[in-house]
Every structure is written in C-alpha cells, then in structure tokens.
Amino acid sequence: MKARSWIIIGVVALAAGGAYGLREFNRGHDDLASSKADHAIAAPELLAAFVNDESAANAQYVEKVLQVKGTIASIETGAGDAPVNLMLDSGDPMAGILCEFNEADLPKDWAAGAAVTVKGICAGYLGSDLLPGNVILQRCVAVE
C-alpha cells in the first residue's frame, strides 16, 4: 500500500513537472497591454538619461516596461512583414525614442504631431560614431 502511494505520487509529480516544462518551453511573450509599467517617463527625459549615463540608464530601464509620453515625430511602415517604427520627439532632430509596433497595435488615427503615451519594453540605447543614439522600445502598445 505504501509503495503504491509513492508510485502514484511519483507519477503525478512527473506529469506535473512535464506539463510545467512544456508550458514554459512554449511560453509566449507577456502582453504589454495588460502589464503594469515599471516606470513612467517623458520622451526627452528618457533620452537624456541614456545620453548622460548609459550604464546607469541600462541598469534602470533596460528590459523594463516603460510608459513614455511624447509627441510623434514620424511614423514609418516597414516593407513586407517588418514592424511599424514610430519616433517620439526628444527635442534633438537626429535622435529620439524609436518605438516598434505591430501594425495591428498602432491606432489608425495616430499621426506626426500628436501627443501620445506608449508602453513598451526597453531594449537599450543605440547609435554609432557618426549618429547620435536612439532609445529603442519594442512590442509597443498605445496607452492614450
């Protein structure tokens, strides 16, 4: 009787472990529409944080859900299945907050000049020797 109980417990544990493993393996990305933002910040301040101290800003903002308020500088639709790129104005014409949207997640009435709030995951800050950096947000959704 005792041995049988142990076998049953073992089988149940294995099944539960397997189910958990399979679920974890196939897990998709969190839906940002229902995630709470870790930080709420204005677009020019977010860019300034990375320009002033990139490693401190990396530690504070990268891989975090950011809710960013700003004015749309441009919206560019990519070729084929490429995502839509929305740039939030930072005050610097050569740099901004580059927000990656799936076309379906971008409100149809958004256009350059509109004041908006965006929620996305921060991937970091990217520029080059010849180009000032942008802050990159991915999997963006509209907040307002």
Binding site: E24, F25, N26, R27, G28, H29, D30, V62, E63, A123, G124, Y125, L126, G127, S128, D129, L130, I136, Q138, R139
Partner: peptide, 18 residues
C-alpha cells in the same frame, strides 16, 4: 561602413528561448 545592433533587440517567438 559600420553596423551596430542591440543584442536585447533580437526577438524570438518563444520567450524562454529569448
């Protein structure tokens, strides 16, 4: 020519893989 990419900007279908 120069290219640069953020490693964290690579997206995978499965979150665990990423």
């Amino acid at each position: 020519i120069e290219f640069s990419v953020l490693i964290k900007a690579f997206t995978f279908e499965k979150a665990l893989m990423q």
